[in-house]
Design a protein around this nucleic acid. Structure first.
Lengths: 125, 125
DNA sequence: CGGCATCCCCCACGATACTG
DNA sequence: CAGTATCGTGGGGGATGCCG
């Protein structure tokens, strides 16, 4: 069963926000959806090298439950499902922007490498 | 041995930032140190109800290794150790501010409760 | 006071296989 | 294509006890 966020009680706002973003891939899913607007399941998979099918769907479901992601199902053959950010999800991404800049600066500071596009999934421990 | 951040490679800045903040209490430690400036070990413990001694010291060491926290040891009897944020740690906290506001807003949205205590009580705007 | 050492548990996460 | 189902595991994290 998907657990999603524990929904409190929290120590403070950061605690509540981290709860929703906790999970190995959630912030990356946010990032991916933010930059592409709408993405199909397979597109998301390709955008997140190394993610397993199971974790991707699980995180997506939890984020949907938390009101961050919208899931649109098209009853066709072959199946087609589109994921996008809700208003709430967009606002979270905006709030994450400054953190992203900090992280980028830190990467330069410590000389960390960046995973570009479809470079090896194995790069990630 | 403490692992601290994996130090890359990363997908993006958010990835790098989340890596450093990942851990059940790290963001809360940041918050606590930010609002009190300098704190002794026992003070931090009291400010984070529920944290175990082991996790607190482990997270503090990792954050020190990541350059976020400064550890000042006084060779006295009884022992005295003071923790504070480095410049880098302060900048991370600044970057976390907007996320904290988002989380606070979300708490209202979903009707989550707040853990009352030193951390929450000292939060002011 | 401020740690470090140990034991142990749970579950987030991964791998694999199958389905509408 | 977009999922389910199931099993196994690593390590994050809790509890407890000892030490300078």
């Amino acid at each position: 069963m998907a657990t999603a966020a524990r929904r409190g009680p929290y120590f403070c706002g950061i605690d509540a926000a981290m709860d929703v973003v906790a999970g190995k891939w959630k912030s990356l899913i946010l990032w991916e959806l933010h930059h592409h607007g709408i993405r199909r399941f397979a597109e998301l998979r390709r955008g997140l090298p190394g993610v397993s099918e199971k974790m991707l769907i699980q995180h997506l479901r939890e984020m949907e439950e938390d009101g961050l992601v919208h899931r649109e199902v098209y009853r066709e053959v072959p199946p087609k499902v589109e994921y996008s950010l809700t208003e709430h999800g967009v606002s979270l991404n905006v709030a994450l922007a400054s953190l992203g800049e900090w992280g980028t600066a830190r990467m330069g500071r410590i000389g960390a490498e960046k995973i570009s596009g479809d470079v090896a999934a194995t790069a990630r421990r």
